[in-house]
Amino acid sequence: MAAKKTKRRVQVKGFLLLFVAVIVALAALLRGKDVALFNAKGVIAQKESHLMIFTVVVLLVIAVPTLMLLYFFAWKYRESNPKARRATETQHGKFLAFSVWAIPGIVLLVLASSMIPATHELDPHKAIAASGKPPLTIQVIAMRWKWLFIYPQQDIATVNYVQVPVGTPVQFELTADDAPMNSFWIPHWGGQLYAMTGMVNQLNLMATTAGDYSGGAAEINGEGFAGMKFTARASLDQDFDQWVLGIRQSSDVLDSAQYNKLLTPSQNNPAAVYSGVQSDLYNTVVMKYGSHDHMGH
């Protein structure tokens, strides 16, 4: 009996040690790491992370006591416990049967009442209201395996690099050309959206802090998938204007010959910039697949 007791004590100690070790290891691994989704640098990402945290907290409120109860019962009613009272059948009244359904039901109501408004508020198609600043439109074409960004207002284009001014709402108009379904994702700024041929999918984001972030393709799309990445830079207004001016000096133009070159599948493409874009290029690309519903208008 005594031996058994010490054995159990050793086991309990072992578990506590293991638990502490896991926490310590996690802390060590996470030190100085950028947990993108909780290190939001955009308004949308921020709100999305708040929703996640709220949900987790609500869920833990029910899950932790439930699991504690489970493991407590398992331990208390172990066969070797002489002190436990036994039954061969649960005498449950209507109340138990009711609460078994009611408890998760209440949690559901709480979560649904935050989820439904959040889904409308954070609808990617919804334009972001910012004080007085007109939105910046960036047309995005997913290709094999690179991202082409066209700035119609600035008449410039870039490959695998995108820059936006901080605090300006950005409308990404996503489409694809000669490519499977793609998903356009910049985790620090906000959630992803699909880019598909023959239609325009609008994703509204707004960066809040200057810096370089990484974006990429999230949906499997063939051999060049892992290398289909780009840098997303958020900069102050004047830096952005400077950058645009700088590109305007470039002699490369995105005409149809250049565009067709880009269409040839290629992997791990370096960034590139173009100082002029053939007029109506984007619409031609969208229309070339016949008419589909345009989303997000």
Binding site: S49, M115, E121, Q192, E219
Partner: peptide, 10 residues
Amino acid sequence: QPPADFQLHN
């Protein structure tokens, strides 16, 4: 939750 899924999907 759709908004959370935009970040976690894929």
